[in-house]
């Protein structure tokens, strides 16, 4: 039982970290990123492949984060000048492309055989417990940093861009550059979460990085209310509470086999999002007042 709690807590922290990156991009800046998992792929693979080459773990992780930031830079430079729907399509495409590259470039990634036996941040019996604390610590630091940023004048510009970027442009701010910064920072955070994901799993496979990961993060951000960092963390907690509860409870209630139960759980999440968007689009922590405002 303790083992499972540690697993759930670690998973929640990783999902929260991953989703905080998306919240910065979408919740604060209004960028529709449907390829968030792409950053995670880069972060995870760069970290483990470099550490397999003997690069110290801290440096390998740093390189993974840097690659995530660079990916965001490339994505942003090519799409941010276009209308925002293009960003959604391009990000989705890039994430899938990355997954397929990782699947097919076997000389580098061993394809569907996955990567195992890479260096981990801790050793010994308490590995999972220590990793959980590390995840929570990093989540705390990132959360603190993001809160500081979004409350600063820098964050004010991001929120203003979310509201109406033409106005921000007319007031002398370089909108493109701010969007790029949000995309890069969010991408770097997602890449970092990828490293933790790899350490938790202790082996990674291309199929770990399906678009579903991105949409889980969207669920989390929408649940908590876009533009609220605390809401995103809460969303991740609810998401994992739901996942673990249904894993144990549903089999006793519904006579279906495992695969169908899995599908049913995702269906319920989809339904939940629809209900939420219809009746509480501001999310759990969002203020109702914000939504009744005329545009």
């Amino acid at each position: 039982m303790t083992g499972y709690l540690v697993f759930v807590t670690t998973s929640t922290a990783i999902l929260a970290l991953f989703s905080l990156g998306l919240n910065l991009q979408w919740g604060f800046t209004g960028l529709v990123n449907f390829g968030h998992v792409g950053f995670m792929i880069l972060g995870a693979y760069a970290t483990v492949l470099l550490s397999l080459q003997g690069v110290p773990l801290v440096l390998a992780t740093g390189a993974g984060v840097l690659l995530g930031v660079l990916l965001a830079l490339v994505m942003g430079l090519t799409t941010l000048r276009l209308r925002e729907d293009y960003l959604a399509i391009v990000t989705l495409g890039i994430a899938e492309t990355l997954r397929l590259v990782v699947l097919n470039e076997q000389w580098l990634t061993q394809g569907s055989f996955g990567v195992q036996g890479f260096a981990l941040p801790f050793a010994g019996e308490d590995y999972k417990l220590l990793l959980m604390w590390l995840c929570l610590g990093v989540l705390g630091v990132v959360f603190w940093g993001l809160e500081r940023l979004v409350r600063s004048p820098w964050g004010r510009v991001l929120k203003a861009i979310r509201e109406d970027e033409e106005v921000v442009k007319a007031l002398g701010k370089n909108v493109f550059w701010y969007k790029l910064q949000a995309l890069m920072l969010g991408g770097g955070i997602a890449a970092l979460s990828g490293a933790f994901f790899a350490w938790q799993e202790t082996s990674i496979y291309p199929e770990d990085f399906q678009p579903q990961q991105t949409f889980d993060a969207w669920t989390v951000v929408i649940l908590g209310g876009g533009g609220k960092n605390l809401g995103t963390v809460l969303g991740a907690v609810i998401f994992w509470a739901y996942t673990s509860l249904t894993r144990f409870v549903l089999p006793n209630l519904v006579p279906l086999d495992d695969a169908r139960l899995g599908a049913l759980r995702i269906m319920i999440i989809g339904l939940l999002i629809m209900v939420l968007i219809r009746w509480r689009p501001q999310g759990i922590l969002g203020k109702k007042g914000e939504l009744t405002l005329g545009k």
């Binding site: 004010r156 929120k159 509201e163 109406d164 007319a170 405002l293």
Partner: peptide, 10 residues
């Protein structure tokens, strides 16, 4: 702007 544009949620 012709139609006043305010940043609603600020």
């Amino acid at each position: 702007f012709q139609v006043a544009r305010v940043l609603s949620r600020l």
